[in-house]
């Protein structure tokens, strides 16, 4: 049972504090939707969680075991259980869609190629890309690349999936397909922490909403209540500005 607990996490870039004490729990089966103004530290939190930015202080535990980000072995073990999809998809440019999905399971985890290949083909079909498996990233649209990136993350069989504004870089007409894939994952019981500006999507799919502002969590609640009656001033101001364009 993956239970991710974050307690009083601080992080900084070059001495400038960006996360000022974030505490958050993601329990098994949770779909946590994280919202908040740009620059509030959402991406930074995810980067810290996957070990791309060492935290200044705070405690991260996975199933009760503390993750020491200064220890390579801890970070490796953590990365075997957590996967992340970035806003800019970051596919390996020198590999086809299929190779992107296969490379880590085969080359890093040492799993049998034929088995991984079958899984990868299945994953790519599930995200609607069975026709484009041998295309290189620059031959795919942003939405297609993002779906490959999701398939690549899923190929690692993560216990928790972190999604960082995976639709923000996409043309509006491509957003729907990607969101549908994530909806499917939520329905299948995937534990996820989803950073997104797609409010109606968060409202529908998240089991919990947290709002970040200025490097800390200012409010948290069930989606229905959060969006109907935000408790704090900041959340009210933020929710008030939302255009529910996809309703």
């Amino acid at each position: 049972m993956p239970d991710l607990a974050i307690a009083d996490l601080h992080a900084a870039y070059a001495g400038r504090t960006v996360l000022g004490g974030v505490s958050l729990n993601v329990a098994s089966g949770d779909v946590v939707g994280m919202i908040g103004p740009s620059g509030s530290g959402k991406s930074t939190l995810l980067r810290v969680l996957v070990g791309l930015l060492p935290p200044v202080s705070g405690l991260v535990t996975l199933d009760g075991a503390t993750v020491d980000y200064r220890r390579k072995a801890d970070v490796r073990a953590l990365r075997d259980r957590l996967a992340i999809v970035f806003q800019q998809y970051n596919l390996f440019q020198n590999m086809t869609a299929l190779e992107n999905v296969m490379v880590a399971p085969v080359r890093i985890r040492g799993r049998p190629r034929t088995e991984v290949r079958a899984e990868a083909i299945d994953l790519l079909s599930r995200v609607g890309l069975s026709e484009r498996m041998n295309a290189y990233p620059d031959q795919l649209s942003g939405g297609q690349q993002q779906r490959v990136a999701i398939a690549r993350a899923l190929a690692l069989k993560p216990e928790i999936l972190l999604l960082d504004e995976v639709t923000s870089a996409l043309d509006p007409e491509l957003v729907g397909d990607v969101l549908d894939v994530i909806r499917g994952l939520a329905a299948a019981g995937m534990t996820m922490l989803i950073v997104s500006h797609e409010m109606s999507f968060i409202r529908d799919v998240a089991s919990r909403v947290v709002m970040m502002a200025d490097g800390s969590i200012v409010e948290e609640g069930r989606p229905a209540e959060f969006f109907r009656e935000p408790q704090t001033e900041r959340a009210r101001a933020f929710v008030g500005r939302i255009r529910w364009h996809r309703d």
């Binding site: 996957v50 070990g51 791309l52 490796r76 990365r79 075997d80 996967a83 992340i84 970035f86 800019q88 970051n90 596919l91 390996f92 440019q93 490379v103 880590a104 080359r107 890093i108 690549r152 690692l156």
Partner: peptide, 19 residues
């Protein structure tokens, strides 16, 4: 971002370079 993607999938420094 190519380094980041590789790092989060547990590629080592040398694996990232080579692959």
């Amino acid at each position: 971002n190519q380094w980041h993607s590789a790092a989060v999938a547990n590629f080592s420094f040398m694996q990232t370079l080579r692959l």
